[in-house]
Simulated assay, not measured.
Amino acid sequence: MSERLPPFPPGALTGAQRELYDAITGGPRAQGPQHFALTRADGSLRGPFNAFLLAPELGGALQDVGAAIRYRSALGSRAREIAILLVAARWDSDFEREAHEAVGAAAGLTPSELAALRAGDTTPFAGDEAVVAAVTQQLLDGDLHDDAWHAASVALGPKVVFELTVLVGYYATLALQLRVFRVRP
């Protein structure tokens, strides 16, 4: 299946689209090591970011949420990538899997841990990472049961549980958009 949206090259963007484009390409995602390309050879955005340009007001809000999750969260890098990759596995999101396996490897996830996450298997993880994985899986099923809430709020704190709910919702939204617009890695 081909992508349903054409790429939006930088020279063809409206003012609001260009502001969002600049926020994405000049923001924290573009700083430091690049584990996956944000843009195509023509400068257009890859992945979910191209679709963000359809509605810059909403796309900008999503971009802000994503940047907060990735760069201003209390979750550690490994724990964050475990959660993101579990969402990608549940929603069979090829782009998110490709992008975040690279980020996860840079955060220290081993090839065997990445393979386990691809299969939705959380048995390789212990401690807080196991709690993050369990919470993520329950959230993907629609709720966090009382026993899991208690364990997570004690181990991680309510703030991190809140951040996990935002992360799961955000990456599930991206997975839906990537499916609808037929975005491939």
Score class of each variant (00 low, 15 high):
residue 1 M to E: 14
residue 1 M to S: 14
residue 2 S to Y: 14
residue 3 E to S: 14
residue 4 R to M: 12
residue 8 F to Q: 13
residue 8 F to N: 09
residue 10 P to F: 06
residue 11 G to Y: 07
residue 14 T to I: 08
residue 18 R to L: 11
residue 21 Y to H: 12
residue 23 A to P: 08
residue 24 I to V: 13
residue 25 T to S: 12
residue 27 G to W: 09
residue 30 A to C: 10
residue 33 P to W: 10
residue 34 Q to R: 15
residue 39 T to H: 06
residue 40 R to W: 12
residue 41 A to G: 10
residue 44 S to M: 07
residue 46 R to T: 13
residue 46 R to Q: 12
residue 46 R to G: 09
residue 47 G to Y: 05
residue 48 P to F: 02
residue 48 P to E: 01
residue 51 A to S: 09
residue 54 L to K: 12
residue 57 E to P: 07
residue 58 L to C: 10
residue 59 G to P: 04
residue 60 G to E: 06
residue 60 G to Q: 03
residue 60 G to T: 08
residue 61 A to N: 06
residue 63 Q to E: 15
residue 64 D to R: 12
residue 66 G to M: 03
residue 66 G to L: 03
residue 68 A to K: 07
residue 69 I to V: 15
residue 71 Y to T: 09
residue 74 A to Y: 07
residue 74 A to F: 09
residue 74 A to S: 14
residue 75 L to R: 08
residue 77 S to L: 13
residue 78 R to F: 09
residue 79 A to N: 09
residue 80 R to L: 14
residue 80 R to V: 08
residue 81 E to W: 02
residue 82 I to S: 00
residue 82 I to A: 00
residue 82 I to P: 00
residue 84 I to G: 06
residue 85 L to M: 07
residue 86 L to M: 08
residue 87 V to L: 01
residue 87 V to I: 02
residue 88 A to G: 03
residue 89 A to H: 07
residue 91 W to A: 07
residue 93 S to K: 02
residue 97 R to W: 10
residue 99 A to P: 03
residue 102 A to Y: 00
residue 104 G to N: 01
residue 104 G to Q: 02
residue 106 A to D: 04
residue 106 A to Y: 00
residue 106 A to I: 00
residue 107 A to V: 05
residue 108 G to F: 05
residue 108 G to K: 02
residue 110 T to C: 04
residue 111 P to K: 05
residue 111 P to N: 07
residue 114 L to I: 06
residue 114 L to K: 01
residue 114 L to F: 02
residue 114 L to S: 03
residue 115 A to F: 03
residue 116 A to Q: 02
residue 116 A to L: 06
residue 118 R to F: 06
residue 118 R to T: 14
residue 119 A to C: 04
residue 121 D to F: 06
residue 121 D to I: 08
residue 121 D to Y: 05
residue 122 T to G: 10
residue 122 T to N: 08
residue 122 T to V: 15
residue 124 P to F: 05
residue 126 A to T: 15
residue 126 A to D: 14
residue 127 G to N: 11
residue 128 D to S: 15
residue 129 E to K: 05
residue 129 E to P: 06
residue 131 V to L: 14
residue 132 V to Y: 04
residue 133 A to H: 08
residue 135 V to N: 05
residue 136 T to H: 04
residue 137 Q to R: 11
residue 138 Q to Y: 13
residue 143 D to Y: 14
residue 145 H to P: 13
residue 145 H to R: 15
residue 145 H to E: 15
residue 146 D to K: 09
residue 147 D to N: 10
residue 148 A to C: 15
residue 149 W to I: 12
residue 154 V to D: 11
residue 155 A to C: 09
residue 156 L to N: 01
residue 157 G to H: 02
residue 157 G to D: 08
residue 159 K to F: 08
residue 161 V to G: 04
residue 162 F to P: 01
residue 164 L to I: 06
residue 166 V to P: 01
residue 168 V to L: 03
residue 170 Y to N: 05
residue 173 T to I: 01
residue 173 T to K: 00
residue 175 A to R: 00
residue 181 F to A: 01
residue 182 R to D: 06
residue 182 R to A: 11
residue 182 R to V: 05
residue 185 P to M: 00
residue 185 P to Q: 04
